[in-house]
Amino acid sequence: MLVKGNHEFNISKEMLWSYLMDPEVLAKITPGISELEPTGEDSYNTISNMKIGPVKGSFKGKLNVIDKEEPSSFAIDMEQLSKIGNAHGKISMKISDADNGSTNLAFNGDVKLSGMIARMGQRVLSGVANLIIKEVFASLETHISESTA
């Protein structure tokens, strides 16, 4: 499953970076995430709940922040296991200057699915995943405007 998209933020690259690297912020803004527990530097155990059409599941997994090049890029390496199937993948994030002083965050990755989530509804799943990632960024934007207000 390929995921790809981007989002613009009205803050500097450095500020965006610091938000993205704060696990509490990430846990708060990511839809479905109920737990993000640090297990080491840049490594977390996660528990999340997802519902996509008829497929509903609780995922347990690992999330590592890798390939960090502050403040312009990093990647998320993740493995999510559930009774309805598993997801393994890496999503690269690129942070760059955009026009009018804002900052662009572009994501691009390939997530391998297995189990029921692979064979039921996979054709719509990448759209859903893109939507979820965009929701994360929209929530982040809300969080930023609330915390800077």
Binding site: P54, K112, L113, S114, A118, R119, M120, G121, Q122, R123
Partner: peptide, 14 residues
């Protein structure tokens, strides 16, 4: 099938 061998249309919806 995807390149990991997953049948990706394994239901009557798909």
């Amino acid at each position: 099938f995807d390149d990991t061998g997953q049948l990706i249309n394994g239901s009557y919806m798909d």
